[in-house]
Amino acid sequence: MREQSGRVLSVNVGAERPIAAKGGTSGIDKRPVDGPVAVRAPGPKGVGGSGLAGDHVSDTANHGGDDQAVHAYAREDLDRWEAELGRSLPGGVFGENLTTAGVDVTGAVLGEVWEVGSAVLQVSCPRIPCVTFAVRMGEERWLSRFTAARVPGAYLRVLRAGEVRAGDPVRVRERPGHGVTIGESFAALTTEPVLLPRLLDVPEFPAEDRAAIARRLARRGARRGAPGVTP
Rank of each mutant, 00 (worst) to 15 (best):
R2W: 00
R2C: 07
E3G: 09
Q4E: 10
Q4V: 03
S5L: 10
G6E: 05
R7V: 10
L9Q: 06
G14I: 06
T25K: 15
S26A: 15
I28N: 01
D29G: 12
R31S: 15
R31H: 14
P32I: 13
V33K: 12
D34M: 14
G35K: 11
G35I: 14
P36I: 13
P36Q: 15
A38G: 14
A41G: 08
P44K: 11
P44V: 13
K45H: 02
K45W: 00
S50D: 11
G51N: 11
A53F: 08
A53I: 00
S58Q: 15
A61D: 14
H63S: 08
H63L: 13
G64A: 14
D67Q: 13
D67L: 08
V70K: 05
A72Q: 08
A72L: 12
R75E: 04
E76T: 08
D77V: 09
D77G: 03
E84G: 02
G86T: 05
R87D: 00
S88C: 11
G91D: 08
G92R: 02
G92Q: 01
V93K: 05
F94D: 05
G95C: 00
E96W: 04
L98F: 05
T99W: 07
D104H: 04
T106I: 09
T106L: 03
V113K: 10
E115M: 09
V116Q: 02
V116R: 06
A119D: 02
A119L: 08
V120R: 11
L121W: 02
L121C: 02
Q122S: 10
P126V: 06
R127T: 01
I128R: 00
P129H: 03
V131M: 03
F133C: 06
F133Q: 10
V135Q: 03
M137H: 01
G138L: 03
E140L: 04
E140T: 11
L143Q: 02
S144Q: 13
S144Y: 03
T147L: 08
T147N: 03
A149S: 15
R150K: 13
V151Q: 07
G153W: 02
L156D: 01
R157S: 15
A161H: 04
A161Q: 12
G162D: 00
E163K: 14
V164K: 09
A166H: 08
D168E: 13
P169W: 06
P169H: 05
R171N: 09
H178V: 10
G179P: 07
G183I: 08
S185L: 11
S185G: 13
F186I: 11
F186A: 04
A188E: 07
T190N: 02
P193F: 03
L196S: 07
P197T: 02
D201W: 11
P206K: 00
P206A: 11
A212G: 12
A214M: 06
R215V: 14
L217A: 08
L217H: 07
R219I: 10
A222G: 12
R223G: 01
G228M: 08
G228N: 08
V229N: 04
T230R: 14
